[in-house]
Every structure is written in structure tokens, then in C-alpha cells.
Design a protein around this nucleic acid. Structure first.
Lengths: 337, 337
DNA sequence: TTGAAAGCGCTAACAA
DNA sequence: TTGTTAGCGCTTTCAA
């Protein structure tokens, strides 16, 4: 397995007794070759376990690598996994392979990963930008592959982007709680506070409050990035002197935290609407009302944009919004006590 | 952004008025260079937006690409996302980048992805083999990168592997149900039936039954791959003439299906133990008892093995088993009615 | 139907 | 401290 040098085209050619170019022709179906030659070449290829060196091929051809680089902040979040699946399904038939790496929500790691992808000459880049990252360097004098920002707009680079309808979705979810009669509605948002999705969803929440003439109370805004911190933040809201009677959870992890906190406190009377769906939402008690995102559609939209750019689309940057959908299941319809 | 040719080393060299080799020296910190030269070179690099072509560098150096290829059957499954995070954390400081792609549990796609990685000369390959895939081709005459199988052993290739303690874990979980007094215990397994983890866990289940002198009844074995199918399969078990009083769910998705089915039927009297933990396990009613896996540890173990091989370890293939842990939370302690 | 020569962008080896 | 030459493995171009 690990041992002698990997075989090259010339090794195969030498083995068969032809020139390297002939082997190349056989492998790439490029130009005429006799059946006899083809047979012998293929036999030698298999016998030697020859694997063409794509780096050499791409270099000579001057063509980009047939891969698309995807940068996400967290591979363990099924939201991004589903996004990746949506991209992959859409680009596979074009012969493109999706390569995914994680930035761990760190601008430095994000940049390192992007440069890794650029140095490997990927055909396109899909990036979920980390908070605090700047992308001006991507738009330098140099010609690079098309870049699409996903889930969040990038900073310092005017290029295509695909996001969910964060603001109107959150507004709709909050309005749903207001319609049930709630006036004190808590918001549990992701961290850091500068996160685009958090800001947009918080803005939607505030817009709904304003529409209903309910004053915004910043004491009702809590934060957490993972499930544990979000649960603690939720308990903090419940412990207020004037606690909320309803909650809007800002994403899937904060939703799990809120659900956990309410369960620990046995507070089935607190209404809850979550941004982003959860696999077990239906069977929670009460069943969880959500503003569902469509991560596979986000991925597919990004892929379509990428393919259009690769096909020569030179129009100005697109900003696509994938709609969210309110799914009432019960937890958002509870009245205030 | 997309336009003129990407700048090369020579472009930079020409711009500064030095040779390509000097620019190379500056960029790679290889050999002496004057401060003045370094300055001018870096300035030109930034101005032109030069990105070194890693394909060319790797080719010339004859070194493999500083990436590790990871092949998983499903990017949307957080289990594999967490595994990937475990690998990444362990290899990052060695300067290796993790590239993940999906086989969609299809041997043909798996092979295509592996060949893609091999053609790009990755430093190592970590593979979660699809059912029905054979890997003899990886062990050919040729020298290739180290390969580690993860979560499941590969077929046709004797190489390193890292798996969970599937059999003993399932045995322990089943024994837990038997200890609570259950004698009719259903098993809901992943599909296809040939899947290694399913077979191992089923074997553990059967071993526990045998230890307790309880006859194995194949009518109590049901199957599903996703949450919906697993829920339907669970309902099928509940509709038997002699239904089970307890269930063992074979993985995270079947667990969510079983939980869903029991909730729909309002059967809080049915005991349940699930293989693999769930984020909301604690707050289900009753709280879900699980045989927890440690996906990050699986990834870390695979990474350690990879690094050892890259460091020249030529000993015979390792078979590492990452232990599972029974976490009693309530659902497995319910007595039979 | 096949081969020879050149060169993609970079770095090793040597020379200056 | 810097430059020149050659060559990594492949494909393009041209010739046979």
C-alpha cells in the first residue's frame, strides 16, 4: 500500500511499448487509437494500479479543478450538512465534486481554508462567512473563481448571495405569538451578537412588536450559542421579575436549549416559536411551532448560481432569498396565562 | 473577479525585477533573501493578488497534497459531522486540511469520490464504507496513501479501522431492558440489513437475549433508514398480536422514529433504549436512555492512526474499538405492564 | 494511428 | 544574496 513510487503515464507507456501520448489518448478518448492498443493500455493501467495525476492534468490544461469548495462554520450542525447535500445533488451531474471544510466560525481559519481552496484551483467557492471575516482580498486585481455567500452575506465583496427570509420569517413567527395574545415575548438569539442571522431575526421580532404597538424591552433578549448556554439563557428570562409568557428561539440550537429549559422547569404554559425546524418538533409536548427553513433549497440555489457563473453569466451580483414557512404545531398557539 | 489570467510566480518576479526562484524563496522562507527584496516581493504579491499554485508546487516537490480525504455516506447526519470535527481538530496543527465528500451510501459514488481524492494525491484517506462496496482496488500493486476505515470495516482490504463497541453496547442496552423485567423486546434496525453496524448491534441484542434465556423472535425485528420509515416500522411492532413491551433502537434516526411512533400512539409505557445519543434525549417524556457513542473520539482515533502511518508506522493494521456508554435516563427503566 | 517536442507553474540542484 | 537549468506528470501542437 505504501511503498514504491506511484506509476505514471510513462510507466504505463513503457510497459505497453507505446508513447505516453498514446496512453493519454486512450484514457481521455482523445483522438484515434486502435482497439488492440486500447486493450493493452487498459490492461497495464489496471495491472499497475495507475491513477492519473489530476494536478498535472489540470496544470497542463490550465483548467480549474473540477471541485467546488464549501466553507461552513460547523460541520456538526445538521443545518450545514443538509445545505451541503443540496449543493452536491445539484452539481454532481455536471461532474463537479463538492469538498467541504470547516472554519470553526473563526475568520483566520476561514481565510486559511479559502486560500487552501484557491491554491488548489477549485472551480467555485461557496462560503458561509464567519462573523468578523472580511473578504475584500477575494476581489483583488486577480481573476478568481466565482464566489457565492450562503446563509450570510459576506463583507467587503460584492458577489452573489443566498439567504433565508430571516427578517420576515421572524416577524411572522412573532406576529403568531402576538396573535395568541402575548405581550411579553422573549428572544433567545445565537451568538455572537453581530451574527447576520441573529441581527435579521431580531429585527423581524422588533418589527412585529412595533406593528402591534408593543414596546421593545431589551431585558427580554437573551443569548446562547450552544444548547446548554441557550437553556441557561432561557432560564434567566424565566427568572425575571416580569418574565415573558412566550419565547422566540433564534435558531435550531437555541430552540433545543429553550425546549430543554422549559422542560426542566415544567413550564408547558410558556409559548414557543423556533426559527429552523427540529427532527422531533412534532412530538414535543406541546408540539413545537417553527419557522421552517429549507437548507437543501439554500444549497440548491447556491449551486444554480455557481453553475450560471461558470457558464459565463456576467450580470451583476444576485441576492436570492429562500422563503421560510411558518409551521403551527401547538407551542406557538398557547395563550398567555 | 473573473477575467484575465491568474498571476504566476514569473509574473510577480517580472513585476519586481527578480527571478522566479527569488520569489519562491521569499514565499517559502527557503534560503537567504534581502529584506528589501522580501518587501518588494510581498508588495507585488499583494498587489497582483497572487495565489501560489499548489498543484504545481506539489507536483514539483513530489509530495502529496496536504489534505486528508473523508468519505461519508451522508453529510446531513450529525453523527458524521461530529466525526469530521474530531478528525479536523486532530490534524489541523499538523497543517493538514480535511476535505469531506459524500458517497450517498452508494458504492459507485463512493468509488468515484475515492478516485477523485487519489487523483488529487491526498495524504490520507478516511472512509466510511458504503454497503456493498469493495476496496480491493485500493490495495493494488501501486503505492497509495494510508487508508483508515471508520464506523464500519471495509471489504477486501486489510487496513486500519476504528469502530464503536457496537456489539457489547447493544448487548448492554438489551440487558438493561431485560433487568427491568422485559421479555418481549423489539429491535428497530437501520437499513439495508447488511449494514455492519446493524448486524453487530443485532448480534449484541441476540446475545443478551440468549444470556437471559429469552428466545429470539424474528417478528420482533423491524427496520427503517430514516425517521419516517422507522416510525412506521415501530408502529408495526406495536400492532403485533403479541407486541413488545420494550424496544431497542439501532441508531439515531431509528431512535427518532421510535420516539415519534410512541408519542403518536401515546405509549409512555413502552420501554426504549436507543443506540447513539440525541440532543433532546433528556427532555423527552420519559427521558431517553441511550447507549451513547462518541463520534468525536472516533474521528480523533482515526486521525491518530493516520498521523502514525504518515510518520512511518509500518506495523500491521490496527483495529481500534471506541467504547460506548450506557446512559440511563428513564425510558429504559420502565417495567413491563 | 502514433510519436516527439514543448511547456503548464513551480522548486531542486547547482552555479555565480 | 541571487540566477540558471532542468524536470515533476501531463496534454497540446505538430509532424510522421
Amino acid at each position: 500500500m505504501t511503498g514504491s513510487r506511484r506509476p505514471t503515464l510513462s510507466d504505463v507507456a513503457h510497459e505497453v511499448g507505446v508513447s505516453a501520448k498514446t496512453v493519454s489518448r486512450v484514457l481521455n478518448d482523445d483522438g484515434p487509437t486502435s482497439a488492440r492498443t486500447r486493450e493493452k493500455v487498459m490492461e497495464a493501467v489496471n495491472r499497475l494500479g495507475f491513477q492519473p495525476n489530476l494536478m498535472a492534468r489540470n496544470m497542463r490544461r490550465g483548467s480549474p479543478d473540477s471541485t467546488i469548495g464549501l466553507v461552513v462554520p460547523d460541520m456538526g450542525n445538521p443545518f450545514f450538512g443538509t445545505v451541503a447535500g443540496g449543493i452536491e445533488d445539484a452539481v454532481r451531474e455536471r461532474g463537479l465534486t463538492l469538498l467541504m471544510g470547516s472554519s470553526a466560525e473563526d475568520p483566520a481559519q476561514e481565510r486559511a481554508l479559502i486560500e487552501t481552496f484557491l491554491s488548489r484551483r477549485v472551480s467555485a467557492l461557496v462560503v458561509v462567512p464567519s462573523v468578523g471575516a472580511h473578504h475584500a482580498y477575494l476581489g483583488g486585481v486577480s481573476s478568481g473563481p466565482p464566489v457565492v455567500f450562503l446563509d450570510r452575506p459576506g463583507s467587503g465583496l460584492a458577489t452573489d448571495r443566498v439567504v433565508s427570509s430571516n427578517r420576515s420569517g421572524a416577524q411572522e413567527g412573532t406576529a403568531h405569538l402576538l396573535a395568541a395574545g402575548h405581550r411579553r415575548i422573549g428572544f433567545i438569539g445565537d451568538l455572537p451578537a453581530g451574527l447576520y442571522t441573529r441581527r435579521e431575526r431580531l429585527a423581524g421580532y422588533r418589527a412585529a412588536l412595533a406593528d402591534a404597538g408593543v414596546p421593545y424591552d431589551r431585558n427580554l433578549v437573551a443569548s446562547g450559542h450552544d444548547q446548554g448556554a441557550s437553556a441557561a439563557a432561557t432560564e434567566g428570562l424565566l427568572d425575571l421579575a416580569e418574565p415573558p409568557t412566550a419565547l422566540l428561539a433564534g435558531n435550531n440550537f437555541t430552540a433545543m436549549g429553550a425546549v430543554t429549559a422549559l422542560a426542566r422547569r415544567r413550564r408547558k404554559d410558556i409559548a414557543l416559536v423556533a426559527f429552523d425546524d427540529l427532527p422531533l418538533a412534532e412530538i414535543l409536548e406541546p408540539p413545537l411551532t417553527v419557522i421552517a427553513q429549507d437548507p437543501a433549497a439554500l444549497g440548491a440555489a447556491a449551486a444554480r448560481t455557481v453553475l450560471a457563473r461558470l457558464d459565463g453569466d456576467r450580470t451583476r451580483p444576485r441576492a436570492e432569498v429562500v422563503p421560510t414557512r411558518l409551521v403551527p404545531r401547538g407551542s406557538g398557539e398557547l395563550p398567555p396565562r
